[in-house]
Design a protein around this nucleic acid. Structure first.
Length: 785
RNA sequence: AGGUGCGUAGCUCAGUGGGAGAGCACUACCUUGACACGGUAGGGGUCGGCGGUUCAAUCCCGCCCGCACCUACCA
């Protein structure tokens, strides 16, 4: 059957996907007597849809998995999705507001959660089907969810035992509060950006010295209402004598002490005196602890001024209060110079709202004891990081780690397994819901309202997906994972925390290696974002999209007008359908040890051409393999390539076999070192520059020799065999990169009967030592020169 | 402020202590029985700048300039 003149992936790819799934080729049995190789898919957000970053990570993971599977490993590619606490809850809340004009509080906790679960059922599997579309050979029957029963049990076990070990505690502390998300967030979720602002000087009258004031400088004058001290540098001649005295806090009726603090105060900066607001500033909080200062909260969870602030200002937003305070200070003659000043400001990584540091009761993980083994494991290469430069990043963060605030004032997530006694106030933390306070025996218990940070369950993911805390066969077989493939943007959020939890609970690292993929950017080098409208949807690359469709999608996502211009500039004719294979090969070929990757569409087109080239080389082979017996040929070369005799292998035959063996070695070495671009490049150049440009051209005369002549027949046989065999083996080598087209061609090619039903489970070619033929390579080089 | 990375052909990017590369784009020719999603031949780069080490530097070291990212408690 002759192949069409050019390759069209559109009907081919879905067909093979169906074949693989229906033949159960991706399932890993933990009891199989094979060496394990395991990768866990970083669980995508349950409400998410596939973006190019997923496509990259998944492609690289799948290349490794398919490669090892073909090598005979018991390869497990573990799928699952993440409940993504804040993100999902906000999405559902927005829909609720839009469609019914209601808030979650209108529904109540249980009814709202029912809505979220319903949402999850409706949209939760979208990304799963998209992952299938790009060929990810995940073991779907194992698919997990971070809030399923098993994961919830793991979360509970981890929380309770960490609490029992004193590694989780509850404390009244200064935390990062997002007034928009209405929850505490961890340090990692706060983005500090420098913004233009002002530095105001305020004169605080010194008590008992009518003529004297102490001048402080601040970028947030409204917080002065919560000041509980002024700090000066010890021994500063300007105001050293004031330590121990008091100032009167303007606009209030309070007097506050003057303290000496060499950590908070830099004598070189401003007036050398600092107002201290322990309730709303991290540094001031620590200073307050050092001096036993009172801690006042004058800003509430809504971001408005509240009670200890004078009545006049209560209910104002911080911005309103700032204006009012400045006006009043000015009127009272307390205001000094004002200067422009760049201020670092914390913004919520999700809502971009200004983060208010507030005093609050929250749960924390004591991080330092958990970090120690995680540091040692990387230093000793129990877990190896690729590219190695990320070791520094990892170690620096780990060595300076701070406690992790894990409680969130949300509803969607793992409820904290802690019960507050209504009688004595003590807290009971337990593996099973308690019926009585473990301190006083009281039966009236109320469970903590808060849920855990999404990343808490993610931190347990490599264990919980394999059955932990049960001691399962899966856990024994597939933990530690062989490698984690993820973006370096979540090295702290996720990688570091999996290391800590894995080492703590399993006593072993969660994965033997981490490969950090580049972050995909657009043509301008900007990180892709829906808001910016510069997102490339991998499904558009695969299936094609008109310019109009691309623009419509960007507008749907609320992208700015510039997005439309960029689409018109970079995609005037839309995107041609490239197919999943071309996308996969491009992503692999572009993956170098760099922090970012620009997905250049002309590269994708180039690799689409490559696939077409492979297709046509195969087409040529099929047109010239009439009467070829692959089993007989396999016998002939079983003990190496015969020289002379009744099967004369020509110089090009010996050369291409030799090159194939060498390339198999190169691919093996490259993939072993996570050098995806090198592996893809070696295959690209072998197929195009050597197999197509030279071998096929040189084979033509032998293939077309007329029958009758014994020598011609023999040459024809060995040429057919070489062509068919080298092509067949090339398809195997290529399969992890381009699974669909390789499978399609492979099934049309004559091949030995003993081979399996699918390339997925066919042995990956090894660098066959008996095929290496230095003399042939050298002579062919002369021919080519 | 500190840290990390980057700066190589028009564009996007590999790479190495001794010969400077790939894809796309560009030029000329070629509708050749696998493929015009192709073939053949070609043009194009003081490898950011200045010093240093070396017999030899695009590569190693120092400084400078530009860009990106990360971390951070300077009021």
């Amino acid at each position: 059957s002759e192949l069409p003149k050019s390759y069209d992936p559109r009907d081919v790819e879905p067909r093979w996907l169906e074949f693989w799934l229906s033949h159960d080729l991706f399932h890993a049995d933990a009891r199989a007597p094979k060496a394990p190789f395991s990768i866990t898919l970083p669980p995508p957000n349950v409400t998410g849809s596939l973006h190019i970053g997923h496509a990259l990570g998944t492609t690289l993971q799948d290349i490794l998995i398919r490669w090892r599977r073909m090598q005979g490993f018991n390869a497990l590619y573990m799928p699952g999705t993440d409940h993504a606490g804040i993100a999902t809850q906000m999405l559902v809340e927005r829909a609720l507001q839009r469609d019914e004009g209601k808030t979650r509080h209108d529904l109540g906790r249980d009814a709202f959660l029912a809505r979220v679960w319903a949402w999850k059922e409706t949209y939760g599997d979208r990304i799963i089907s998209q992952l299938k579309r790009i060929g990810a050979s995940l073991d779907w029957e194992r698919a997990r969810f971070t809030m399923d029963e098993g994961s919830s049990e793991a979360v509970r076990e981890a929380f309770v035992s960490l609490y029992e070990q004193g590694l989780i505690y509850r404390a009244h502390r200064l935390i990062n509060w997002c007034t928009d998300c209405f929850t505490a967030v961890s340090d990692l979720e706060v983005d500090t950006v420098e913004e233009p602002g002002h530095l105001w000087e305020i004169h605080y009258p010194v008590v008992g010295e009518p003529e004297r004031t102490l001048t402080v400088a601040t970028t947030r004058p409204e917080t002065m209402l919560g000041d509980t001290a002024v700090a000066v540098f010890p021994g500063d001649p300007r105001h050293g004598d004031l330590v121990g005295k008091r100032v009167r806090l303007p606009l209030t009726d309070r007097e506050i002490p003057i303290v000496a603090d060499d950590i908070l105060v830099d004598p070189e900066f401003g007036s050398g005196a600092v107002k201290v607001t322990p309730g709303h500033d991290e540094n001031d909080f620590e200073c307050g602890q050092r001096h036993g200062l009172e801690m006042l909260s004058v800003i509430d969870v809504h971001g408005k001024m509240c009670d200890p602030a004078p009545e006049k200002y209560r209910g104002m937003t911080t911005a309103e209060a700032r204006a009012a305070v400045l006006t009043d200070l000015e009127a009272g003659g307390f205001l000094g110079d004002t200067k422009d000043h760049v201020v670092p400001r914390g913004r919520c990584g999700r809502s971009n709202t200004i983060i208010e540091p507030l005093l609050s009761d929250q749960w924390f993980v004591r991080a330092r004891p958990l970090a120690e083994p995680a540091i040692a494991a990387v230093k000793s290469k129990k877990t190896e990081l690729f590219p190695p430069t990320f070791e520094k990043t990892y170690l620096h963060w780990m060595e300076n780690i701070r406690d992790w605030c894990i409680s969130r004032q949300l509803w969607w997530g793992h409820r904290i397994p802690a019960w507050h006694c209504q009688a004595c106030g003590e807290i009971t933390v337990a593996r099973t819901d308690p019926s009585a306070c473990e301190s006083c025996g009281e039966a009236r218990l109320v469970q903590d309202e808060d849920v855990l940070d999404t990343w808490f369950s993610s931190a347990l993911w490599p264990m919980s997906t394999l059955g932990w805390p049960e001691k399962t066969t899966d856990l024994k077989a597939f933990y530690p994972n062989s490698v984690l493939v993820t973006g370096h943007d979540i090295i702290f959020f996720w990688v570091a925390r999996m290391m800590m939890m894995g080492l703590h609970f399993m006593g072993k690292v969660p994965f033997r290696a981490v490969y950090f993929t580049p972050i995909v950017t657009d043509e301008n080098g900007d990180k892709m974002s829906k808001v910016k409208g510069n997102v490339i949807d991998p499904l558009d690359v695969i299936a094609g999209a008109s310019r109009e469709k691309l623009i419509a999608r960007a507008e749907e996502n609320g992208a700015p007008p510039v997005a439309k211009k960029n689409i018109e500039k970079y995609f005037p004719d839309g995107m041609p359908p490239a197919g999943a294979d071309a996308l996969r090969f491009s992503l692999a070929a572009l993956t170098t040890p760099s922090r970012t990757m620009r997905l250049a569409m002309d590269r994708v087109e180039g690799y689409r051409h490559f696939i077409n080239k492979l297709w046509n080389a195969s087409r040529f082979a099929l047109m010239n393999l009439d009467g070829f017996d692959p089993d007989r040929f396999a016998e002939v070369i079983a003990g190496g390539l015969p020289r002379g005799g009744s099967h004369p292998f020509s110089l090009p035959d010996r050369w291409i076999f030799s090159r194939l063996a060498q390339v198999a070695g190169e691919v093996h070495d490259a993939l072993s070192g996570y050098r995806f671009a090198d592996a893809a490049g070696a295959l690209y150049h072998f197929v195009w520059d050597e197999l197509c440009d030279w071998y096929i051209e040189l084979a033509k005369p032998a293939l077309r020799a007329d029958g009758g002549d014994f020598d011609a027949e023999a040459r024809r046989f060995s040429t057919q065999g070489t062509l068919a065999t080298v092509l067949e083996l090339s398809l195997r080598l290529l399969h992890p990169f381009i699974p669909f087209v390789s499978e399609e061609i492979w099934h049309k090619l004559p091949r030995p009967k003993a081979l399996p039903e699918s390339l997925v489970v066919t042995l990956y070619p090894q660098p066959e030592a008996t095929w290496i033929d230095a003399e042939a390579v050298q002579k062919m080089q002369l021919v080519m020169d």
